[in-house]
Simulated assay, not measured.
Amino acid sequence: MTTALITGATAGIGAAFARRLAAGSASQAGGLGGGHNLVLVARDTKRLQEQATELHDRHGIEAEVLTADLSEDDGIAAVEERLADRKNPIDLLVNNAGFGNKGRFLEVSMADELMMLKVHCEAVLRLTAAAAEAMRERGRGGVVNVASVAAFVPRGTYGASKSWVVQFTQGAARDLAGSGVRLMALCPGFVRTEFHERAGMGTDNVPRWMWLDADKLVAAALSDLERGKTVSIPDPRYKALMGVAKLVPRRLLGGVGSRAGRKYGPQ
Results as ranks from 00 to 15, higher is better:
residue 3 T to A: 07
residue 8 G to A: 08
residue 16 A to R: 03
residue 17 F to K: 04
residue 20 R to M: 09
residue 22 A to C: 11
residue 22 A to E: 11
residue 22 A to M: 08
residue 25 S to W: 03
residue 28 Q to W: 06
residue 30 G to N: 00
residue 33 G to Y: 02
residue 33 G to W: 03
residue 44 D to K: 01
residue 46 K to I: 12
residue 60 G to M: 08
residue 60 G to T: 09
residue 61 I to L: 06
residue 62 E to Q: 13
residue 68 A to F: 08
residue 69 D to T: 09
residue 72 E to N: 07
residue 74 D to I: 09
residue 76 I to Q: 03
residue 77 A to H: 10
residue 78 A to L: 12
residue 79 V to K: 06
residue 83 L to I: 10
residue 90 I to N: 02
residue 93 L to K: 01
residue 93 L to D: 01
residue 97 A to D: 00
residue 97 A to V: 04
residue 100 G to W: 04
residue 103 G to Y: 00
residue 109 S to T: 15
residue 113 E to K: 04
residue 120 H to K: 04
residue 124 V to Q: 02
residue 129 A to T: 12
residue 134 A to D: 11
residue 134 A to H: 08
residue 140 R to L: 07
residue 141 G to A: 11
residue 142 G to D: 05
residue 143 V to N: 05
residue 147 A to E: 10
residue 147 A to S: 15
residue 148 S to E: 02
residue 150 A to R: 00
residue 152 F to C: 06
residue 155 R to F: 10
residue 156 G to N: 05
residue 157 T to F: 10
residue 158 Y to K: 00
residue 160 A to I: 12
residue 162 K to L: 10
residue 163 S to K: 14
residue 166 V to A: 09
residue 169 T to R: 03
residue 171 G to F: 00
residue 172 A to T: 14
residue 173 A to M: 08
residue 183 L to A: 11
residue 183 L to Q: 05
residue 185 A to W: 02
residue 199 A to F: 06
residue 205 N to M: 13
residue 217 L to D: 06
residue 224 D to L: 07
residue 228 G to R: 05
residue 228 G to M: 05
residue 229 K to A: 15
residue 230 T to R: 13
residue 234 P to Q: 03
residue 234 P to A: 06
residue 235 D to T: 15
residue 239 K to R: 15
residue 240 A to I: 13
residue 243 G to N: 12
residue 245 A to Q: 10
residue 245 A to E: 07
residue 248 V to Q: 09
residue 249 P to A: 00
residue 253 L to M: 05
residue 255 G to W: 09
residue 263 K to L: 12
residue 264 Y to N: 11
residue 267 Q to R: 12
